[in-house]
Design a protein around this nucleic acid. Structure first.
Length: 508
RNA sequence: GCCGCGUUGGUCAAGGGGUUAAGACGCCUCCCUUUCACGGAGGAAUCACGGGUUCGAAUCCCGUACGUGGUACCA
């Protein structure tokens, strides 16, 4: 009898939401939906010194944009709240005290100066570990070394203290990771991590165990950077709730920087010229603004898609997946063990694919506002859709719609004279003057009709079609880009076509 | 340093004892188009190294190297 699938994403509200974060959300979400389970977002704000105003709301904005909406969270509510750890503060102490009472944890009164001294001493002694662990705890100031009444005295006179887990050496801690298989640690190397801080807040280690238990999390996915502290969590589960209740773990591979080594950071994006955050983020204290994938012109479908296949694939040649397909095909067992370097070129390719494949109406509002911001006047949505349909194959980012389609909405700002001038002569002049006349008489304004008029005249004047078409294009577009010239002429209409020919002829 | 995890072309990757070692991005050539793309056809480029096990190893084992993460009263 397996319990209901419940997974959680547990971000700290400390700044922009990174690619890796969104991918963790995505894998959580896919796994939950695939198993008919719940996806919970829990805000891990136990470090009051790192709190950043607005960061929490920003996280939800990103999730909404991606379409990865939680079933339970501080915003949605739910039966297992509160979903903000700072609001659960009192709960953690109860468990910490229970651990102390059971002999699995102890009070430690060491000041930060004393801790520094301990590490310095270890260093000069040539110890290969600088940890607060079974080697040193009996030399420190804690409830293991102090007499009971001393401890009571310190506690009652308000001496700052933390609660540390007491890790006994000589044991093996093992667990099965859904991605990596069996992993084991020797408790000799595990330190006595702080569980409850002097300010009464839990550390991540205590909070994650308590909350995963109380929120009945069945499967816990998190970044690989957590693997080294996993034994502490396992021990805590053992002492507090029993291993049977523990969620199944999956430690996700890291997303690495494209060049050099190390995990991808915001700085790498700045340096290499691509976003790392899902959406624009502005740090309220430094005022530093960072670009996001959304604002740079990515479709959420593409963003999700590229993240999904960065570290996972379904074993077939398929690369483009919708969220629905991902829910069906995702498999945690097929997630890679090794980290993947992020490749922005490939990321753009996904966006290009989604722009090509999607109904233009599904993102025309975005394109419309981009075009309007650039000063174009968009009157008719049907016209916009038609234009987008014509140019979408050549757009990689949403902004490309401007360079690829502005001439459908306004006369070209400039003409590529360099391309035309060398080929321009009296004969061409005559051709375009006559073309104007004939086109203005054309009653059925369609690209086939325009083309046949054009061809007929070219044949009559014995001029090669190629050069004429190129010139015609520059007249209508301003440069040598875009779809077929006759379609362009049809689309912009008779009036604009004649008018652009006229003003171009005057220039050449 | 110590501990954990990893390693298939430049990048993402399939493949888990016998394959000509898929596919995609990027790069190059050609076709289409007298534009720019899209599309199509090709091309260069890979199993980190060393030992085993085996008739046979990219695949299994052991070392080494390299990478990566942790080593906080941060998550």
């Amino acid at each position: 009898m397996s319990k209901k699938v419940r997974v959680r994403f547990a971000p700290s509200p400390t700044g922009g939401l990174h690619l890796g974060g969104i991918r963790t959300v995505l894998y959580n979400y896919l796994f939950a939906k695939q198993h008919g389970g719940d996806f919970i977002v829990r805000i891990e704000d136990t470090d009051q010194t790192r709190f950043v105003d607005g960061a929490e709301q920003y996280i939800f904005n990103c999730l909404n944009w991606c379409g990865l909406v939680p079933d339970e969270s501080v915003q949605q509510g739910g039966a297992y709240g509160p979903y903000r750890q700072s609001e659960r503060k009192q709960r953690y102490r109860v468990y910490a005290e229970k651990l102390v009472a059971d002999g699995h944890a102890y009070y430690a009164f060491d000041s930060s100066a004393e801790l520094d001294k301990m590490r310095d001493d270890l260093k000069t002694k040539g110890s290969h570990t600088l940890q607060y662990d079974h080697h040193v705890r009996m030399d420190m100031k804690n409830s293991l070394t102090l007499a009971e009444d001393e401890v009571r005295a310190l506690l009652s006179d308000g001496t700052p203290y933390v609660i540390r887990i007491k890790v006994n050496p000589g044991n093996q801690v093992m667990f099965d990771d859904m991605i990596r298989g069996s992993i084991s640690f020797d408790t000799n190397n595990v330190d006595d991590k702080v569980l409850l801080k002097a300010d009464g807040m839990p550390t991540y280690h205590l909070a994650v165990v308590v909350d995963d238990y109380e929120m009945q999390i069945s499967h816990a996915f998190r970044g690989e950077e957590w693997l080294p502290s996993a034994p502490v969590h396992i021990l805590l589960w053992q002492h507090l709730f029993g291993l049977a209740a523990m969620p199944q773990w999956a430690h996700l591979p890291l997303i690495l920087k494209p060049d050099g080594n190390g995990k991808l950071s915001k700085r790498d994006g700045d340096r290499l010229g691509f976003p790392v955050y899902a959406m624009d983020w502005r740090d309220p204290s430094t005022k530093e603004a960072t670009k996001g994938f959304k604002e740079i012109g990515f479709l959420p479908e593409a963003f999700i898609n590229l993240l999904a296949v960065l570290g996972w694939n379904d074993g077939t040649e398929q690369e483009v997946f919708s969220l629905q397909e991902l829910v069906e095909k995702f498999s945690i067992a097929k997630v890679h063990k090794g980290g993947a370097k992020f490749d922005f070129e490939k990321a753009k390719w996904f966006n290009h694919e989604w722009i090509k494949r999607s109904e233009v109406s599904s993102y025309s509002t975005l394109v419309k506002s981009i075009l309007e911001q650039k000063g174009l006047d968009i009157q008719d949505d049907n016209y916009l859709h038609a234009v987008m349909e014509l140019v979408k194959d050549r757009c990689t980012l949403l902004d490309d719609f401007y360079t690829q389609s502005h001439y459908f909405f306004a006369d070209p700002l400039s003409l590529d004279e360099a391309a035309v001038k060398p080929k321009w002569d009296e004969q061409k002049n005559a051709f375009f003057n006559q073309l104007s006349n004939r086109l203005s008489d054309l009653s059925n304004w369609s690209n086939v009709e325009i083309e046949s008029v054009f061809k007929e005249l070219a044949a009559e004047l014995k001029i090669k079609m190629g050069e004429l078409q190129m010139i015609f294009r520059v007249m209508l577009v301003g440069s040598k880009i875009g779809p077929g010239v006759f379609i362009i002429a049809e689309t912009i209409g008779k009036g604009s076509t004649l008018q652009r020919i006229k003003s171009a002829v005057a220039v050449f």
